[in-house]
């Protein structure tokens, strides 16, 4: 069940790094994406603006989590747990909006 890494050498092998290069690539990607959102915000796309901004932010944070935070290289249980977090937050958001969106309307289900 448990693996004990008392020997630093064995540990070093177990956690082999990905190399400096990939991180720098990801960083370049992140900077470019930042440029993209700032640029798009300047253009007048109205309602779409928030959507695009959130989309770009999601891509950026996915990159950070997958590579910088190693989520992509961890055992699957990490990703499962992360999914639980996302689902929970989505539930909170959806149910909260089932109230605030319909405050002034009559019951839309059995109206």
């Amino acid at each position: 069940m448990q693996h004990e890494h008392h020997d630093p050498a064995a540990h070093e092998q177990a956690l082999h790094g990905l190399g400096y290069g990939i991180y720098i690539l990801i960083w370049i990607g992140l900077v470019v994406l930042t440029g993209v959102t700032v640029a798009i915000a300047g253009v007048d796309v109205r309602q779409l603006a928030v959507l695009v901004a959130m989309l770009v932010a999601s891509v950026k944070s996915t990159l950070v989590m997958a590579y910088f935070m190693h989520l992509k290289y961890e055992p699957p249980v990490f990703r499962w747990m992360f999914l639980v977090l996302l689902v929970t937050f989505a539930i909170f958001m959806i149910l909260l909006f089932s109230d605030v969106l319909f405050r002034s309307s009559p019951n839309v289900l059995f109206g």
Binding site: A41, A49, A53, M54, K60
Partner: peptide
């Protein structure tokens, strides 16, 4: 950092 990635557009770019 990730949290800032969301805060930034929500406050500065809308």
């Amino acid at each position: 950092d990730v949290i800032w990635i969301f805060l930034f557009p929500l406050f500065y770019l809308i």
